[in-house]
Structures are given as C-alpha cells and as structure tokens.
Design a binder for these strands. Structure first.
Lengths: 157, 157
DNA sequence: GTAAACCCGACTAGTTTAGTCAAGTAAATA
DNA sequence: TATTTACTTGACTAAACTAGTCGGGTTTAC
C-alpha cells in the first residue's frame, strides 16, 4: 500500500470542486492556486479522475471541471482508487499465494487491515467532508486569502 | 504512509520468533528458510529491531535471536515502527502546517485515518497472532515441509 | 481569431525498496 | 586454542516510483 501526495492531492482537489460547485465549472488553474498543487500535476490526476467518470470537463473559456455525480455518491476510497493508489496492504493482492502458492504467515492480518482501511474511506463521502467544521473553516480562509490578494501565489513552489 | 514488504517481513519474522520461541534462540538462517526472506535483508531488519529492544541476540554456535519481551507486550505497530515504516498518512507529520503553515483542506481526514490504522495495529500483539487458527496452520505447514525436506529452498528467489 | 481552458505524451531528478557483497567480531565447543 | 557458527556493519546497486516539468496540441466562448 502507498498513500502519498498523489492520493491526497486527488482528494483535496475533488473536495475543492465540491466546495466551489455553485460557481459553475472550476478551472484547474483555480484549484492549483487555492490548494497549491502544480497545474501540470493536476492535469495528470484529472485525466484519471475523468476516465473513472468522477468528474466531467467543460472546454473553452470559462470552462473547467465539475463533479459528475452528487457529492454524496463519491467516496474518498473511489478517488484514491481512481488515481491508481491501492489501499491494499497485502503483498499478493489478496490472492493468498504469498508463499509458494500458499498463504504466508501474516496474510490474514494484512487482509484484515486492508478491509478496515477500505471500509473507513468508503464510508466518507465528499458531501460528509464538506459538512465538517474544520473543512468549512479552511475553505473560508482559502477563498478570502485569495480574494484579498494576500497570498503571493505566482512563483511559490 | 508506506506499508511495503519491509514492514511485512519484519512482522512475519517476529511472528516466526514467537512461534518457535520454545526452541531457544532462532537463527536468521532458519527464519530465512521458513519465511523465504533473504538472509542479508533479515540482517538489516534485525539490526533495527534490536536497536528498538524488540529482540535480543545470542552470538556463537547455537545462537540466534529471541524476543526481548513477552509476546503479549509486542504489538504489530511497534514492529513496523521499528523498521522505520511510518503509519502516518498525513503529509505534515500531524503538525497541521500542510499549507503555508496552516492546515490543508483534508488534514483532519488523514489524521483520523492514521489514528485508526495505528489503533488497529497497536491492538494486535504477537501473542494474539500466535493464537489465530490461520497462523497455526501455516506454521505447522512451514515446519513440516521443512523437516520433510519437501521444499527446495536452496536457490529459490 | 484569439485567448482560455482542457488534453496528451515524453521526459526527469530524486528517493526508496529490496536486496547483494565483503569484511569483519563474538562466543561456544572440540 | 582453533574452528566454526552466527551476529554485525557498511558500502553498494538495479529497478521502480513519485512528483513533478515541458512542449505541444485541441476545443470553444467571445
């Protein structure tokens, strides 16, 4: 299993989309500024999110991305899966052939942990994240800082 | 967060130690054969396990490693931690300075997931693994296959 | 027709994993 | 005390992956 910035960026970007949904299509440039994620990298991630039908795109000026389903119907697990990060912590991809075609000593333990991680992240939808107080606060901060021009966003990272 | 063969090997090797404890010190060569883990790699892992006082070593002929505590007092989380694999899935190492010194949008989510993974693996001791039926079965298989010479272990992987 | 935005593929520096290899040191037994 | 077994340490490495960059497209609103 890996859970790196790739998966975290994807979830963060999708949450940004959910939070700003009422503004119409959101450009990757906007997400890039608000969330401080490289635009080119976002393009890579959104290519995969689009392939998995989690977002749809609108081309041309004023275009951008929007969620292709209700935020209630998109779980964090689905997003991480879409960008090819696996939540599986077994070595054998759950097949039980970890040692000469048979189960290794700790197979059951890793299956169990994988199931718990998956269950947790499947139980969390974008909609439930949007409702959290912490998320609301950060979102307000991000939007106000930007509108007030307080952040020098130009060349940062 | 990473959970790779490094952490899995460490847990497997420690469980092997717990299962074969009554035989006295267990050599890395034995663990290497039973669990099919490279001897040199085991040496690296056990150096770290010893530094964290999870095992103690006995030198000389007939020597090897043994658990330095009761198996009830060693958790899977401790073992993974000892070999420098982090169970933390945040980007900021829980510090909350993920975005320009303040929390990123998904900070709380990753803290929550990290806590759950840690709680799960902390709740599992070597002793509780030893008692599991699946583990018992695999252990019996490993020992009998070896004593009967059914496994060609020489050049495999 | 031009600019805003998405789309796509090639490339890459750096890090980590999962080891190998070689040269030791410590201690039990003959 | 010689020998052997086993631990100990450190240097090295191929392959894979991450987290990007770069350069060119294409689509569409105005």
């Amino acid at each position: 299993m890996r859970l790196t910035t790739k998966g975290r960026y994807a979830v963060t970007a999708m949450l940004d989309l959910a939070l700003n949904a009422e503004k119409g299509p959101i450009s990757l440039a906007d997400i890039s500024k608000r969330q401080e994620i490289s635009l080119s990298y976002l393009e890579q991630l959104f290519a995969k999110l689009r392939q998995q039908s989690l977002v749809s795109s609108v081309r041309g000026p004023g275009g951008g991305y929007k969620l292709s389903r209700e935020p209630e119907a998109i779980s964090v697990a689905q997003i991480i899966d879409a960008v090819n990060e696996s939540l599986d912590v077994t070595n054998c991809e759950r097949q039980g052939n970890c040692q000469q075609g048979q189960q290794c000593l700790t197979h059951h333990l890793w299956i169990d942990l994988s199931d718990r991680i998956h269950a947790f992240l499947s139980s969390i939808s974008l909609a439930s994240l949007v409702q959290q107080d912490e998320v609301q606060e950060v979102s307000v901060r991000q939007n106000s800082a930007r509108e007030l021009g307080l952040l020098d966003v130009s060349g940062v990272q």
